[in-house]
Amino acid sequence: MTISLITGANKGIGFETARQLVDLGHVVYIGARDTERGQEAAEVLGARFVQLDVTDDSSVRDALATIEAREGQLDVLIHNAGVLPTDLDGPTALHAFDTNAVGMVRVTEAALPLLRKSDNPNVVTVSSSAGSFWAVTNPERPEFNLPLALYSASKAAATMLTVQYAKSQPGIKFNAVEPGTTATDMTAAFGVGRPADKSARIVVRLATLGADGPTGTLQDENGNIPW
Rank of each mutant, 00 (worst) to 15 (best):
residue 7 T to M: 08
residue 9 A to W: 07
residue 14 G to I: 09
residue 14 G to C: 07
residue 15 F to S: 12
residue 19 R to L: 07
residue 20 Q to G: 03
residue 21 L to D: 01
residue 22 V to K: 12
residue 23 D to E: 15
residue 26 H to W: 08
residue 27 V to Y: 02
residue 28 V to M: 04
residue 28 V to S: 07
residue 30 I to V: 15
residue 30 I to N: 08
residue 31 G to W: 00
residue 31 G to K: 01
residue 34 D to Y: 13
residue 34 D to R: 15
residue 35 T to S: 13
residue 37 R to V: 10
residue 39 Q to S: 15
residue 40 E to A: 15
residue 42 A to E: 06
residue 42 A to L: 12
residue 46 G to A: 05
residue 46 G to P: 04
residue 47 A to F: 03
residue 48 R to K: 15
residue 50 V to I: 03
residue 54 V to Y: 05
residue 55 T to C: 09
residue 56 D to T: 02
residue 59 S to I: 00
residue 59 S to D: 00
residue 65 A to R: 11
residue 65 A to M: 04
residue 68 E to N: 12
residue 72 G to V: 01
residue 74 L to T: 07
residue 76 V to M: 02
residue 78 I to Y: 04
residue 81 A to F: 01
residue 81 A to D: 01
residue 88 L to F: 15
residue 89 D to K: 01
residue 91 P to D: 10
residue 93 A to Y: 01
residue 94 L to D: 10
residue 94 L to N: 08
residue 95 H to N: 11
residue 96 A to T: 15
residue 98 D to S: 10
residue 100 N to R: 03
residue 100 N to W: 04
residue 100 N to V: 00
residue 101 A to P: 02
residue 103 G to W: 08
residue 104 M to H: 13
residue 104 M to N: 13
residue 106 R to D: 00
residue 110 A to S: 11
residue 111 A to T: 06
residue 111 A to N: 04
residue 113 P to I: 04
residue 113 P to L: 05
residue 115 L to W: 06
residue 116 R to K: 15
residue 118 S to I: 04
residue 120 N to M: 04
residue 120 N to C: 09
residue 121 P to M: 03
residue 123 V to G: 03
residue 124 V to L: 07
residue 124 V to Y: 10
residue 126 V to S: 05
residue 126 V to H: 04
residue 126 V to K: 03
residue 127 S to N: 05
residue 127 S to I: 06
residue 127 S to F: 01
residue 129 S to I: 05
residue 129 S to L: 08
residue 131 G to S: 14
residue 131 G to P: 14
residue 132 S to I: 06
residue 135 A to D: 15
residue 136 V to Y: 01
residue 140 E to F: 00
residue 142 P to W: 07
residue 145 N to C: 06
residue 147 P to C: 07
residue 147 P to G: 09
residue 148 L to H: 10
residue 151 Y to A: 10
residue 152 S to C: 11
residue 156 A to K: 13
residue 156 A to I: 12
residue 157 A to F: 01
residue 157 A to H: 05
residue 158 A to V: 06
residue 167 K to D: 13
residue 169 Q to M: 14
residue 169 Q to L: 15
residue 172 I to K: 03
residue 174 F to C: 10
residue 176 A to P: 11
residue 180 G to I: 10
residue 183 A to V: 02
residue 185 D to G: 09
residue 188 A to T: 07
residue 189 A to C: 00
residue 192 V to F: 10
residue 192 V to L: 08
residue 195 P to E: 00
residue 197 D to C: 00
residue 197 D to E: 12
residue 198 K to N: 03
residue 199 S to P: 13
residue 200 A to K: 02
residue 200 A to I: 09
residue 201 R to M: 12
residue 201 R to D: 08
residue 208 T to G: 08
residue 209 L to G: 08
residue 210 G to E: 11
residue 210 G to V: 09
residue 211 A to S: 09
residue 214 P to G: 00
residue 220 D to P: 12
residue 220 D to G: 13
residue 221 E to N: 12
residue 222 N to Q: 14
residue 224 N to L: 07
residue 224 N to F: 03
residue 227 W to E: 03
